[in-house]
């Protein structure tokens, strides 16, 4: 299922994805206390904040993985928080791309199979999926380890594989949680350059969680989250 939500203009146009006033607690621990964030087509928004401030939680809520207790996440004409699970899953498959902080590569599958995974889940044929995966693996320079399994590659190679996988299905929104966490400066720069290039080329929206200002500087905008609430929402740049 694809929701019709790819506005062409990046500025002043409707945001592609907008979460507003999100609240969520894990038992007694409040993780989100009124967080808002919106991102437009082709725009990259950095979410920064100290450890445990709720960055990953916000990301998961925006992507429909966690259901906030209150608040809305608008994507196109839909409120993601009101969609049934099946449709949220379909959105994640077809419209969103992910780079997670933990445990994202499937250890049983080789690198190229991991990259092709979203396509296979969406029902793309084997050959076609491989071809498209190969393209992204080349751009992320992981072609050489295509046959390796996640247990046999370095943390940075794993992260680049994850980025390739996030981009392979031409997503409308890419969610990246610390995509450069395990990378050295140069490799991190390559990944970030690639991400921003892709955002530019294909008007992909990127929500980027990071704690490194240098990485956040690749974004068009920065949203700081402190103790579960966003400090500076919707501030225009320039």
């Amino acid at each position: 299922m694809t929701l019709d939500a790819s506005p062409d203009h990046r500025e002043d146009a409707e945001p592609v994805l907008a979460g507003s006033d999100l609240h969520l607690s894990f038992g007694p621990t409040p993780a989100l206390r009124g967080a808002s964030l919106s991102v437009g087509a082709g725009e990259t928004v950095a979410v920064t904040g100290s450890s445990g401030s709720g960055k990953s939680t916000l990301l998961h809520c925006l992507a429909g993985i966690l259901m906030p207790e209150s608040g809305q996440v608008r994507y196109g004409d839909h409120d993601i928080t009101a969609l049934p699970d099946k449709q949220r899953s379909a959105l994640r498959r077809t419209d969103f791309g992910f780079v997670f902080q933990f445990g994202q590569l499937v250890p049983e599958l080789t690198v190229d199979e991991n990259v092709a995974l979203p396509l296979r889940l969406a029902g793309v044929g084997h050959k076609e999926a491989r071809r498209r995966a190969a393209h992204w693996m080349e751009r992320l320079e992981v072609t050489g380890i295509a046959d390796h399994r996640p247990g046999e590659i370095s943390g940075g190679q794993g992260q680049r594989t994850a980025v390739a996988r996030a981009l392979v299905a031409d997503p409308v929104v890419v969610f990246a949680d610390e995509p450069t966490g395990a990378l050295d400066s140069l490799a991190g720069e390559q990944v970030m350059t690639l991400l921003s290039d892709v955002a530019e080329e294909s008007t992909t929206a990127v929500v980027l969680v990071t704690h490194e200002p240098r990485v956040a500087a690749y974004a068009d905008r920065e949203v700081v989250i402190r103790d579960g609430s966003t400090q500076r929402e919707q501030e225009p740049v320039r």
Binding site: I65, D85, K86, S89, A90, L91, R92, R93, T94, F96, F98, F100, G103, Q104, L105, V106, L117, P118, L121, A122, R165
Partner: peptide
Amino acid sequence: ALRLVGAD
């Protein structure tokens, strides 16, 4: 992990 990337 598959579920997170969108398997229903």
